[in-house]
Amino acid sequence: MRLGVGVIGTGFMGKTHALAWRNVQAVLGGMMGDVATPDLALLCDAPLDRAQALAAQFGFARATDDWQALVTDPAVDVVSITTPNGLHHRMALAAIAAGKHVWCEKPMALTLAEAEEMAEAARARGVVTLVGYNYLKNPAFTHAQRLIAAGAIGRLVQFRGWVDEDYQADPDLPWSWRAKLAEAGLGALGDIGTHLVSFAHGIMGPITSLIADMQTIHETRPLPDGSGRGVVENEDAASVLLRFANGAQGSLVISRSAWGRKSRLGFEVHGTKGMIVFDQERMNELQIYQNEGPKAEQGFKTILTGPTHPPYGEFCPAPGHQLGFNDLKVIECAALLRAIAGAEPAHPSFDDALRIERVIHAIADSARNGGARIPL
């Protein structure tokens, strides 16, 4: 059985989706069971000559510059949406209305109301949805989840998370759509903070309340045409105090203006018997401290991911040889194929991702209301 694939967008994320769709059967076909084989049917971007050139490069049968034609094309069964944030909502709704499964990059939408509409539409139409939180598929992260479930660090008491990058640290970086609420929505919260919240949920479970503050570090930026400076309408950084449903407390720090940080997405989770530490900049490592044995011999242990941390072994038979960002996208793609085949629920679906969106918008609401506690 074939599954017709349509991808909207050919930038960085569009290319990662194309690579995942092309490679998923070759890498993970042996462990996926009876799933459909992806058929790269249609690629969309503008202008058309760019779409045609990249369709040939990526291995797609056809190209178009009309996304509405793609989502209604009878050869397309599943749509990858990799466009800027402001287009996710209408593209996803159109694809769902046409009965297509949807793989959408995060954040889901510009507003919470739009995200809720997307989730409701997907439930009503019965299509499979997946949101691009590929860091959740990292074998190091899933091993941390298994360790915690097995009681390796005891009862969880605190989560400390951070996500820092420097792609907006330079005050002379030109103003762009990322600075505009109508096109980007939230700033650092929507772009990278969502990933951190996905980690918090994946490790600790639901968040029940929070208190937050936000900061726009560079309030204006030079306009690209040199005519002056444009106002930055969203946040560069945020700090959050959390409470989880399991009774634990937590904190999050988020910045897109942290010089020297490239993808510093990570956490410490503290338990009554030890601690687990992860950092995406060292994505093939996990650190664990356990309060066991002679005190003189206790210390942090570094676990290098390898074939004993599935599905690492499907990519490489040797530990310590490292997986990369695009490999996580392949794992994510395999999960989507299994969900479409009915073998397992898609995670995070639009419903799962909506819970993440509610958290980031609650952070913004708390900050705008002087650090008020917001229940969730």
Rank of each mutant, 00 (worst) to 15 (best):
K180M: 14
P375E: 10
E297S: 13
A53D: 13
V240Q: 00
A26K: 11
L19A: 13
K329F: 15
W175I: 06
G293E: 02
R123F: 07
G6P: 03
G161I: 03
L241C: 12
A109I: 09
S255N: 10
T194H: 02
R338I: 03
A346R: 04
T216H: 02
D45V: 12
L223S: 08
P310C: 05
H361D: 06
Y289R: 02
R221H: 10
F350V: 05
M13G: 10
H89I: 01
G228F: 09
T305R: 12
G187E: 05
H361I: 07
I96E: 00
I8D: 04
E165G: 14
W67G: 10
H101G: 05
D365I: 13
K295Y: 11
I363S: 06
A63L: 01
V7R: 02
H347N: 14
Q57D: 14
V197K: 06
A169K: 04
A119S: 08
Q290K: 08
P38L: 05
A341G: 05
Q68D: 14
Q280E: 15
Q158K: 15
R160M: 12
E183Q: 15
A109V: 09
E117V: 05
H143P: 08
N326H: 13
A140V: 12
R243N: 13
Q57V: 11
A18Q: 02
A95H: 06
A149S: 09
S251R: 15
P38N: 07
P310W: 05
V102N: 05
E233Q: 15
H361Y: 09
W259M: 13
V277M: 10
L252T: 03
A346P: 06
V240L: 01
N234L: 07
D191F: 13
W21I: 02
L147M: 12
G190P: 02
L42K: 01
V127K: 08
V277H: 11
A346V: 05
L87P: 10
M214F: 10
L286G: 02
T72A: 15
H101M: 02
S198D: 12
L19F: 11
I303E: 07
V128A: 12
R256S: 14
V102R: 06
A53E: 15
E357R: 12
A184M: 11
V78N: 09
H88Q: 01
S198N: 08
I303F: 10
F350C: 01
R338N: 02
E344G: 10
H101V: 00
R146N: 12
M1E: 14
V197R: 01
Q68K: 14
A121T: 06
R355N: 11
P317Q: 00
Y289P: 04
D34V: 00
A169M: 03
T16V: 14
G29T: 07
T302P: 03
Q52A: 07
A113K: 04
